[in-house]
């Protein structure tokens, strides 16, 4: 249980970071003024959420006392 949730948290967190950077923030587009904003608003916020989720997994893994 502990390992499953921790792994999930890391995957979800890392997934949010990758998604934010590659899909939501339009890094492939840098030649037009139309690209000056990210494709989805708050893409950077989503990246930060990803970081928080991924690193919170360390606290969960350390503190969790339920069934393994």
């Amino acid at each position: 249980m502990r390992k499953i949730v921790t792994t999930l948290m890391i995957l979800v967190g890392f997934g949010l970071m990758v998604l934010s950077y590659t899909a939501l923030g339009t890094p492939q587009c840098n030649t037009s003024v139309a690209c000056s904003n990210p494709r989805v608003a708050f893409a950077a916020g989503i990246f930060v959420v990803g970081i928080v989720v991924a690193f919170s997994s360390a606290i969960f893994y350390s503190v969790y006392k339920g069934p393994r």
């Binding site: 934010s20 950077y21 923030g25 339009t26 890094p27 840098n30 000056s36 904003n37 990210p38 608003a41 708050f42 893409a43 950077a44 916020g45 990246f47 930060v48 970081i51 928080v52 690193f55």
Partner: peptide
């Protein structure tokens, strides 16, 4: 949070340094 762009080094500074 709203307009940060990955192309900008400030994006890395903000997301990686300040937050991450």
């Amino acid at each position: 949070f709203q307009y940060g762009r990955p192309q900008s080094p400030f994006f890395g500074t903000f997301t990686m340094v300040i937050a991450g």
